[in-house]
Design a protein around this nucleic acid. Sequence first.
DNA 1: TATTGTTATACTCTATAACTATA
DNA 2: TATAGTTATAGAGTATAACAATA
Lengths: 140, 140
Amino acid sequence: MEDFLNRLPGYNLRRASTVILSELTDGLSELELRPSDASMLITIDSNPRITPSELGRILGIQRANMVPMVARLEDRGEIVRIKRDGRSFGLELTQQGSELCNRAKAILLEYEDRFLLRVPAEHREHLLPALRALWDQTSA
Amino acid sequence: MEDFLNRLPGYNLRRASTVILSELTDGLSELELRPSDASMLITIDSNPRITPSELGRILGIQRANMVPMVARLEDRGEIVRIKRDGRSFGLELTQQGSELCNRAKAILLEYEDRFLLRVPAEHREHLLPALRALWDQTSA
DNA sequence: TATTGTTATACTCTATAACTATA
DNA sequence: TATAGTTATAGAGTATAACAATA
């Protein structure tokens, strides 16, 4: 039907990303988390006392856009701010946030399997390294 | 740094899609086209007199969201509406739209090459079929 | 009854500029 | 000077509900 677009990596990347993100959003909704919230919890968990700016750099989110995201998780009691110096603070998971993080991880792993099973076996192991090379030049 | 996220297809898909779409947006900006505009022109080109509803179904865009997109390309003189029946109309490229479509195609092909070269050779040929399987179940 | 085009609306993601306080 | 946190704002993309006209 539309051969030209179907051969473009960028087009197929966008279509795949939209579908997969939509499913992940559904899957995480039982925890009242969006995919970006889950990625924040997971990154704070393995980088305790990380600053919002550094968190944004790791996740590819502008620090201006981190402000409401951090505030929302703090209001819910999932994370706390710990003063570092006069101009910055570190983030840490609360006990509640840690439990939520683990539940989010379990859901994400479940979806990971489901997604990979959709990919024909001969292409499956190539997906992750190919995607990483596209967005993270330091990975090549 | 963040092993958990880096192993998730969904996370890497979103990161890769964001980076690649951003570059495509830059590349197409010299034609004053966004990626979605280009995909419309290309699909109209190979499906003359396609209705906005059908175009939206092919591209994965709600028909309500097609309205301003079609109007914008029409205002620019890239496409025309051709009456089909009392409630629908088909879209066709004008001569100007056809030339713009060809220029967009050339840019997209140039970027396609650039993106694929970023992927290590052993994974390269697997990217497209893997992505298609993720979003288009009829392709498997 | 189902579909088309349309309007209105809302939420998310992303981006930028500018400000302050501090390093 | 550079960085951190913040505010305000704007542009995209995506989604839903509802309506009139037509099939």
